[in-house]
């Protein structure tokens, strides 16, 4: 989980430190940037989704036992 957390942190760090690029580039659309935006959304959902799942798991928030069978 620590590795997943580090990857999530790195992704968000990269996103927030490149704010200038996003403000300047992403508001001028083209096909490539659209693909990039959708790709970023999928990447974050995959990596961060796994991390958040394990995060609650570690804290003991799991599905009811009848759903775990």
């Amino acid at each position: 989980m620590l590795i997943q957390g580090s990857v999530v942190f790195f992704l968000y760090y990269a996103l927030m430190t490149k704010q200038e690029v996003i403000i300047n580039e992403f508001s001028h659309p083209d096909f490539f940037k659209t693909v990039l935006i959708i790709g970023i959304a999928f990447l974050f959902s995959f990596v961060h989704g796994k991390f958040t799942h394990n995060f609650w798991d570690v804290l003991g928030f799991e599905a009811s036992k009848k759903y775990q069978k």
């Binding site: 968000y12 996003i22 096909f31 940037k33 659209t34 995060f55």
Partner: peptide, 29 residues
């Protein structure tokens, strides 16, 4: 909808991913 809006340069991916950061914690719970 996202593809449509992104093609017009309306998606601020920073905003979307910040909200996603919180909402993925929430949706799991």
């Amino acid at each position: 909808g996202s593809i449509k809006y992104a093609l017009h340069g309306l998606v601020d991916i920073r905003l979307a991913m910040i909200i996603l950061a919180g909402s993925l914690f929430g949706i799991q719970l």
